Simulated scan of single mutants.
Amino acid sequence: MHCQTCGDATSPAYEECLRCGTRAGQPAVSPGVPTYGVGGLAVAGAFAVGATVLCYLLTALFPIVGVRMARSAAEQLDRDVLLGAVLAEVLFSLPYLLAVLTAGTLVVIWTWRARKNLDAFPGAVPNLGPAWAVAGWLVPLANFVVPARVLADLLRNSVWRRRRSWLVGVWWVSWLVFLIGDRFVARAEQQRYDRLTELPRNDAEFGTYVRFYEDALAPRLVPAVACLVAGIAFVVLIRRISAAQQDRLARAVPVWPGQPVWPGHPGRPAPAAPMPVAQTSPQVPPAPGGTIGA
């Protein structure tokens, strides 16, 4: 026999699984506890996260285009070309913002569903409640720590492969580097941009815009690489967790009326009382002297 929680082979000599501690005979999913499919949502979320990473990389590499446009503006002494560079960067940012909103919505829904499924898995012992699966992404400061703890709960109680827990650490570190690095770089760039001449008139003033874009590329590479690593690690995590949960949900046997349920489960129906049987007298054949034929 194999454990319904982690899949390891079980021994009749032990009442519990040696890996996860699940009692022998427990089902894959507790009857009566609602569960949620996460397979399709994981695919959509992975696609949205990948699109977000791609859009962010395009915005991070925009200084390559900005340098060319600033040099063209310096050669022509044309301020409109510089304005075009600003508008082009805004246009680069719009797909990224749309991808972030889409990916964020899908990830929050997926996290909540995956966390709710743990409540239906016998042997799962999560550290945080389902509410943190949503609030952890939205509450300021908490979003630096809580999502990593929720993902660690999901990985530990869904996949049951402790050697893969390092992937959560890789995602968490790269995620923090991306969040902090992106904000730091954006603030530093804004300060540098505010010091530029608003209406350049000569080669020297136009040259400051060229140097601005030249110096902007290197700092952007740090959050860009962190975003790429975090995106890849997160996609792998949600795919592995979703595959493990879907496999466990598929092993669940629906409980039909009259089918025995796991002993000791709180949702086990009470045995039905036997139907009372009316006492009947044995049928006596008619005899002479009765009403008929009297």
Rank of each mutant, 00 (worst) to 15 (best):
M1C: 02
M1H: 08
T5D: 09
T5H: 12
C6N: 04
E16G: 07
R19G: 07
C20V: 07
T22N: 11
Q26K: 10
A28P: 05
P31A: 15
G32C: 04
V33H: 03
V33P: 02
P34H: 08
T35I: 00
G40N: 01
L41G: 00
L41Y: 00
G45E: 03
A46F: 03
A46L: 03
F47E: 08
A48D: 03
V53C: 11
Y56D: 09
A60G: 12
A60H: 04
A60C: 14
I64P: 01
M69S: 09
M69C: 08
M69Q: 13
R71F: 07
R71N: 12
R71G: 14
A74H: 09
R79V: 13
D80L: 10
V81Q: 13
L82R: 05
G84K: 03
G84E: 09
G84H: 02
V86H: 14
E89A: 15
E89Q: 15
V90Y: 11
Y96E: 13
Y96S: 14
A99K: 10
L101V: 15
L101E: 06
G104Y: 07
T105N: 12
V107K: 06
I109C: 13
W112P: 03
A114H: 04
K116Y: 10
D119R: 15
A120P: 09
G123Y: 04
A124G: 07
V125G: 09
N127H: 14
V134F: 09
V139L: 13
L141Q: 03
A142Q: 01
A142R: 03
F144P: 03
F144E: 01
V145R: 07
V146W: 05
V146F: 01
A148F: 06
A148R: 06
R149A: 14
V150I: 12
L155A: 14
R161S: 14
V168W: 03
V170T: 13
S174Q: 04
S174H: 06
L176I: 15
F178W: 14
I180G: 10
A186Q: 15
A186H: 08
A188R: 11
R192E: 13
D194H: 11
E198D: 13
L199T: 15
L199P: 05
N202K: 02
D203N: 12
A204Q: 11
F206Q: 04
R211I: 07
E214A: 12
D215I: 08
A216L: 07
A218I: 10
P219L: 05
L221M: 11
A224N: 06
A226R: 01
A226Y: 00
A230C: 08
I232A: 12
A233Q: 02
I241H: 00
I241V: 14
S242Y: 00
S242M: 00
Q245F: 00
Q245N: 02
Q245Y: 00
Q246S: 13
L249V: 01
L249W: 00
A252V: 07
W256R: 14
Q259G: 10
P263G: 09
G264L: 06
R268L: 08
P269M: 06
P276F: 05
V277A: 14
P282Q: 10
Q283G: 12
V284C: 03
V284K: 06
P285M: 08
A287T: 13
P288S: 10
G289P: 05
